[in-house]
Design a protein around this nucleic acid. Sequence first.
DNA 1: CAGTATCCCGTGAGATACTG
DNA 2: CAGTATCTCACGGGATACTG
Lengths: 105, 105
Amino acid sequence: MYEKKIAKDLTCGLNIAIEVIGGKWKANLLANISKGLKRPSELHRSIPRASARMLNQQLSELEFHSIVEKTIFNILPTKVEYALTPGGESIMEVLRAMKSWGERL
Amino acid sequence: MYEKKIAKDLTCGLNIAIEVIGGKWKANLLANISKGLKRPSELHRSIPRASARMLNQQLSELEFHSIVEKTIFNILPTKVEYALTPGGESIMEVLRAMKSWGERL
DNA sequence: CAGTATCCCGTGAGATACTG
DNA sequence: CAGTATCTCACGGGATACTG
C-alpha cells in the first residue's frame, strides 16, 4: 500500500510533479500506457529491465495519484488493464516536452 | 567523479531527460540557480533538507551533462559560482511545464 | 567556504515462493 | 495472469572529520 511522501514544507508544484512522475519507471510506464499497452504483462514485456514487483509498485503509486485507472476483470485467468486518467493525459504533454528535449542535439 | 548510467538499449529522449534532471535534488537546484542563486552555500541554505555532500554530487552530475557551468574563483575564502548553460536554460522550459502541472487543481 | 574521504546504517529492490 | 509476502543484501546517503 502506498502512502504519501510529499514533504509538507516543500509543496511547490515542481516537487509535486517530481513526486508523481519521478519514480524510477513511472515515465516509462506512462509512455507505454499512452502508446496503447494496457496489461501488466505487456508493460513488463516492454520494460524487461524492471521487475514485475517494481512495476506493480510504481503502477499502484500512479493509481494512488489518479494518474492511471485500473480495471480488474473478474475472469480467469485474471485480466487487468490500466488506462490514463484525464490527469494522466495532461501530464503526457510534459513527458512529451521532456522527450523532445532529451532528443535534441 | 560521475560516470554515465544511461542504459545503452534505452536511449530514447525521455530516459535521457530523466537521467539528466531526474536526480533527487536536480530540479530544485536548477530552479534555484535559475532564480539567481549561484554559490553552493546559498543553494544549500535554500535546500536545507539535502546535505551539502548530496548537493555537491548532484551539481557535479549537472555539470557533467553540461546543464550547469562551474566557475572557481582563486581567492580565499574559496568562492564558487554555478550558472545555467544554454542547455540548462532550455530545460527550464520543461521544468516550468512540470511546475505548472503540479500546481493545477 | 568548497570539496573529499571514511565509516556506517536504513531501505530499495532482486529472487523466490505462494495465493486467487 | 496478477499480486503479495519474506528473506536478503548492496548501496544510497547521513554524520563526521579533514584538506586547500
